[in-house]
Design a protein around this nucleic acid. Structure first.
Lengths: 231, 231
DNA sequence: GTCTATAGTCGGATAGAC
DNA sequence: GTCTATCCGACTATAGAC
């Protein structure tokens, strides 16, 4: 089979260039995640993508451009990963405004559980395996790449959680208490991914699969109810 | 002042070599933490330490040896940082065995609060500023360096917390529930350091100083009591 | 758009004088 | 123990053919 520079048939919605571009981004996501920005070599990324090293400069203007493209990709996937969940909750919030406090609280807790469940699964799926390391690195010393996510889906999700927490605790959604509480709740989910080595060692687990995830999730639900119950 | 290879006077407890060694470790802690293992150059480490680059090979057999020395240093400092707190709690645990459940629970919660307070402050002090990034990196893909801490002070502290949690919840200290709960509680402390960029952005804070620390700490205490109360 | 080849830079390690 | 000087490998980016 000989190589050709002709455009592929219109049956394929994507041009050859777009395929290469995406292959490079997915390879970069993995290699940047595994090795860090500096340790990752454009050679190894191109190899994994099955593309030529020089194409990184052609498509992304350089290593840094590719790095930013990776975070735009993550932000996109993050939005898709949360699916309709966040949107549905936002809509429902408007319709339950004139319900009783107890009903609103019940809805808020159920919504938080849905978000937590999705987060736990997202943060441990194979698809997102390499997000965490990339994001964690940016948390420590944020570059322009961090803003791409933070002003995007991540920030919006945090605002939503804060509103839900505020409903349960009967405090304003703008209060520092509501904000910090949503962060602390997220911390319980976050530790499962960020401290994976400690988790496995401390729990004496071989891996963190569906069963282990469910176990952790249920305990987080219990904690959530304990923390948010108004008394 | 001319350089000399003679041993310095016995009034100084340390030889010239030991001073160089420690300067290199402290510089390496910072540079490895900031740049990651690979991105950190032995040249920049030597520069910051005010030492010659070739001395890294002389003292540590190479870059990797220096990296391991850094984690031994962290483990040492970690033990010192917890001070007598952990030891005191372990001792007291033996003497309160025949007290009432309520008294034991009160002691366990007070102890956990002491540990949490110390952890929050340790994880945010200038002295330990560079630990986190080094440790977080090892959590994602553990090398031999991770074992140095995990089998040391970190593992012991987790076991202690698990015992305290088990007392409150009236469950065996070997149960997965007690282990996971102590991990989830730690997650609330951990998120304050590991998600620093998100924390600042979400809270709309400029920095995370003593005042902010106290605010977060108090909320963690409240959550702790809510989570561990037996009903 | 994709390729090969290479220029230019930097980092880890070592040899050997002091 | 500490220094200078240097070797050699690996990396990013670019030039230019196809």
């Amino acid at each position: 089979m000989t190589k050709s520079n002709h455009k592929i048939s219109p049956i394929n919605s994507r041009s050859r260039g777009e395929n290469t571009r995406e292959a490079l981004i997915e390879a970069a996501l993995e290699i940047f995640g595994r090795d860090g920005y500096q340790a990752a070599s454009t050679r190894s990324i191109a190899d994994k993508a099955g593309a030529n090293q020089a194409l990184i400069n052609y498509h992304f203007k350089g290593k840094e451009g590719l790095y930013h493209a990776v975070f735009e990709y993550i932000a996109e996937q993050m939005t898709q990963g949360m699916g309709q969940i966040a949107e549905d909750i936002r809509k429902s919030l408007e319709t339950i405004e004139n319900q009783s406090k107890a009903e609103q609280t019940a809805f808020a807790i159920a919504s938080l559980e849905k978000i937590i469940s999705r987060l736990v699964h997202m943060m441990n799926s194979n698809l997102t395996k390499h997000w965490s390391t990339n994001i964690l690195r940016e948390q420590q010393s944020p570059t322009a790449a961090f803003d791409i996510m933070n002003t995007g889906p991540m920030g919006r999700l945090f605002k939503l959680c804060t509103r839900l927490v505020a409903i349960c605790k009967n405090i304003p959604a703008e209060s520092e208490q509501a904000r910090m509480l949503s962060l602390l709740i997220f911390g319980q989910v976050h530790v499962l991914r960020a401290c994976r080595a400690t988790l496995l060692s401390h729990m004496q687990w071989e891996n963190f699969g569906e069963e282990q995830m469910q176990f952790a999730e249920n305990l987080i639900y219990q904690n959530l109810r304990a923390i948010l119950q108004t008394d």
